[in-house]
Simulated scan of single mutants.
Amino acid sequence: MTLTKVVGAFCGALLIFLLGGWAAELIYHTGGGHGDDHQQAYVIETGNDEGGAEEDTGPSFEELFVAADAGKGERIFNKCKACHQLEEGANGTGPYLYGVVGRDVGSAEGFGYSGSLSAVADVWTPQNLSAFLENPAGYAPGTTMGFAGVKDMEDRANLIAFLDQTDGDTYEVEVPAAAEEEAPAEEPAEETTDAEASEAPANDGAAAEDAASDEAASQEPASDEAAAEEAATEEAAADDSAGGFADVVAAADPADGEKVWRQCRACHKLEDGANGVGPHMAGIVGREIGSVEGFRYSNALQELDGTWTADELNAWLEDPKAYAPGNKMSFRGLRKEEDRAALIAYMQSAAE
């Protein structure tokens, strides 16, 4: 009897299960898979018949990196300080990060790597660093780095921009060209009627008379302009005789200097009176050394005389420690002359 009861209970449960499936099929049946040809009850219009609109992914990493704020990156670096140092050769739990941007992977002397990094990349380009910092364990499985990662791409760009300025040699990133917008079609030139053609000589004559009157008027201050030009030429010649670096600055592109400026804006501002970690750079060219009000200079700079000419700034930016031994500026300098010239040209243009 017990066995009969168990079998009966099992059959009853199976019957209930089958009846439940049959009832659900009647209620929720969509016609798929049984040869029925039912139409969908209604269609939601999306406005795109070709598979949906392409999502706006925002700016690329390259665009964010070019416009990155090294000052913000320095604050993000606080997450890294427990394991990494910025001084060359100062390894800790992790390898030192001085000059890491553009450095060969696994090349920090004296640090024992896990070996998983060299399997996925050869050089720490900004793009490779971004991918690694986003998810270290996912980028290089087996790495001993336990950091969870920096998920925000803009934060990664700022952090890498800060690390990029540690050795004074910035890494140039090529921004992918955006899709060119179609130029608006040029309007067809209006046909000139016979009446307009007949009026043209008269208009030309009037224009000639206007030109003649303008020329006569311009001849009056010609002597003053010539004198001014001559004075400017003499002043330029005097500047040229002072040194050749001024010519390099004059030929430099301020737009290139704006990129180099990324290394400076963590400590300096271009607004007059806006001191930060360092003094403001407004009107730096031609300004007396150590003369910014409200900023406390080191004794090394206070003892210097003279003004910040292009040549003086060139020597200072190349090697601040050698120019003024004992100064508090930790920046190691810009090794490339063209970078120094472009930076000075940019600071001059910003002050105008």
Rank of each mutant, 00 (worst) to 15 (best):
F331Y: 13
D210W: 04
Q348S: 10
E293F: 02
E45L: 10
A185R: 04
P221S: 01
W124R: 01
G47R: 05
T57Q: 07
A195F: 03
P136H: 05
D272F: 11
E338V: 13
Y171V: 09
A140V: 00
K269H: 10
A242I: 06
E187I: 04
E312A: 15
V277G: 08
D37C: 04
A140W: 01
A212P: 05
A195T: 07
V101N: 05
G8Y: 03
L334I: 13
Q165D: 07
P176W: 00
P201W: 04
E87L: 08
R287W: 04
S291I: 03
G142H: 07
R287Y: 08
K5R: 14
E63A: 12
T30N: 15
S60A: 08
L163S: 10
S291V: 03
P136C: 11
G278F: 08
G115H: 09
W316T: 02
I76G: 01
T93G: 15
G283M: 06
Y297D: 00
Y139R: 13
Y96A: 08
A227V: 03
G168F: 08
V120P: 01
S291P: 02
R332W: 01
L26C: 06
D319K: 14
S213K: 12
D305N: 03
A67I: 01
A242R: 15
A197C: 06
E109M: 14
A227M: 08
